[in-house]
Simulated assay, not measured.
Amino acid sequence: MNLPAYFVLQARYSQWVNNRLYDVCATLADAERKQDRGVFFGSIHGTWNHLLLGDRLWMARLQDQPQPYQRLDLELYADFSELRAAQSTDDQNLLEWVQNLSADDLERRIAFRSLSTGQDKELAVATMLTTLFIHKTHHRGQITALLSQCGCDYGAIDFICAPFVD
């Protein structure tokens, strides 16, 4: 598999698993989703908000757009349905964007300032995409742990369980 195809596969998986986990989260009452459970961004809802913010921040950098946020803990959407719809749209946009990348595109370097460290960085697109997908996996891991604590069964979501992975 070549590197552009790898990132398409990562985007497809991310879209698939986000949809599966949002389905499970939708079974919880809003108060349960928003209950502070002691994770980085407080709650399941707060973690989903941060995931979307992170996606948008990385995509702005990747597309040479201004940084849309100055903090990592903003609540973009208080309403769960709006948050889910925004994530779904952004997942589709990410998939479409990576489907148009070439190997040369992945080597292009982009300069930006890190919100978490305040340091100026310059990374290859491939490294930035890797960071984006690892970030998503990290916080989805928190969400699955919280769902387990709530007694929710989110099923088999490992990468190899996705219906399009062969």
Rank of each mutant, 00 (worst) to 15 (best):
V8I: 04
V8P: 11
V8D: 08
V8T: 13
V8R: 12
L9C: 07
Q10D: 00
Q10I: 05
Q10W: 03
Q10C: 15
A11G: 02
A11E: 08
A11N: 01
A11P: 07
A11V: 04
R12S: 15
Y13H: 02
S14F: 12
Q15G: 11
Q15W: 02
W16H: 00
W16E: 02
W16R: 03
N19K: 07
R20Q: 09
Y22I: 14
D23F: 12
D23P: 01
C25P: 01
A26W: 11
A26N: 10
T27A: 12
L28R: 09
A31F: 08
A31P: 13
E32A: 03
R33K: 06
D36I: 04
G38D: 02
F40Y: 15
F40Q: 14
G42C: 03
G42P: 05
G42H: 09
S43Y: 08
S43P: 09
S43L: 10
H45K: 02
G46S: 01
T47I: 05
T47F: 02
T47D: 06
T47Q: 03
W48P: 01
H50G: 07
L51F: 04
L51A: 08
L53F: 00
G54S: 11
D55F: 05
D55L: 03
D55K: 03
D55R: 05
D55H: 04
D55E: 09
R56H: 05
L57I: 09
A60T: 14
A60R: 00
R61E: 00
R61P: 02
R61G: 00
L62Q: 04
Q63L: 15
Q63I: 11
Q65M: 03
P66F: 12
Q67S: 15
Y69R: 12
Q70K: 08
R71T: 11
L72G: 10
L72I: 08
L72P: 11
L74A: 12
E75K: 14
E75F: 14
L76C: 09
L76N: 06
F80C: 05
F80I: 09
F80R: 13
